[in-house]
Design a protein around this nucleic acid. Sequence first.
RNA 1: CCAGCGAGAGCCGGGCGGUUAGGCAACAGUCUGUAAAACUGUCGUAGGCAGGUUCAACUCCUGCUCGCUGGA
Length: 365
Amino acid sequence: MLKEPTFVPVGTQATVKSLTPEDLKAIGVEIFFCNTYHLYLRPGDKAIKKFGGLHKFTRWDGQLITDSGGFQVFSLGKDHNGAGSLIKISEDGVEFRSHLDGALHFFTPEKSIQIQHNLGADNIIAFDECTPYPATKEYAQQALDRTHRWAVRSLIEHKKLNKKLNQDLKLYGVIQGSYYKDLRQQSAEFICSQDFDGIAIGGVSVGEPKDKMRQAVEWVLPYALKTGKPIHLLGVGEVDDLFDFFGQGITSMDCTLPTRMARGGQFLHRTGNAKFNLKNRFKDQIMHIKYKNDQTTLDKDCQCPTCQKYDKAYIHHLFKTQELLGYRLMSLHNIYFMTHTTQLIRNALKDGTFEKLKIDWLGRL
RNA sequence: CCAGCGAGAGCCGGGCGGUUAGGCAACAGUCUGUAAAACUGUCGUAGGCAGGUUCAACUCCUGCUCGCUGGA
């Protein structure tokens, strides 16, 4: 499990897109996040189990965490360009229509946990519903109660399997509650009272304004901190989030953003001291015409493998020509930026210099 | 010299007497437990030139220019 602030890149299909395990090691990655739903569909959890589990399959000897499929209840539930919802939720579980071939699959909490045990990540997550935003209070309450019942079922199945398979996977329970204070607190109280190994905060970064997200986390944090267990913030990871949440005791967060942005040509960087916290302060687009002849690196003083050798003009060219190397170099850089910044935060928290560091970066506390 | 065909935005290109072609490129924006090497927006009254017919022409007609093909 993760004891210190850790940024967790996302490798949905058992790969952080475009990078090898050696790359990940080189840029300070300790753990990455795989997905139960996607790996269940392809290549299949049983296949992965036969290969000896995710670690052997991927040749990654660091830690791994799998998501339960709970986020897909949200993301596949949305209409994508009028394609219609691919899921149906009931008390027992969720009916998924595969986005690959339309076939029906049914996930229950037990099934999600079974799949996750087959996949064999070090850390796994209870099956939940990532509540869409906005949600009515009635719906949020109903979804929350169901998620709690699923949490208990997940926990029971997990303990059973850990014993049966002689494994010691760690299970995170997920707090939901949408954007209602009493529901969030109710959820925090319940999840924190159960025998989970870690606490995850979910249902955030689903389209809500950022101040609401911060508030929802703050409602819940006192309960989670009291348990002394690792606290994972699901799906969050803009640069300012690292400071806002690690600073308050969150121990890990995962996010697709650094890798997804990388593939879109956006690179993370830090330029000078911020007097105020401009949106987009930490990101820029390599394909902008102004970088066509720019022979400086993506970020001044960056120690990542990309910035050790390559300049903006070259990476600009790789993106304009859609060369695969561009995605790779940019992913290396962005993830390094996240892990390195997290490392700075770790150190500052130990030294007691965190507030100074945060003001230095964000221009605020 | 004659005949046939063709000419459209930076490039390619379908259609049509009236109302957005479309694609690519270019430029910009968006992305927070990945249906994402994705998505969105902008590319300005573009129609080889000159006339004619018509309420209305990129579309029909005439001439010219240029290009391709074939023939003397």
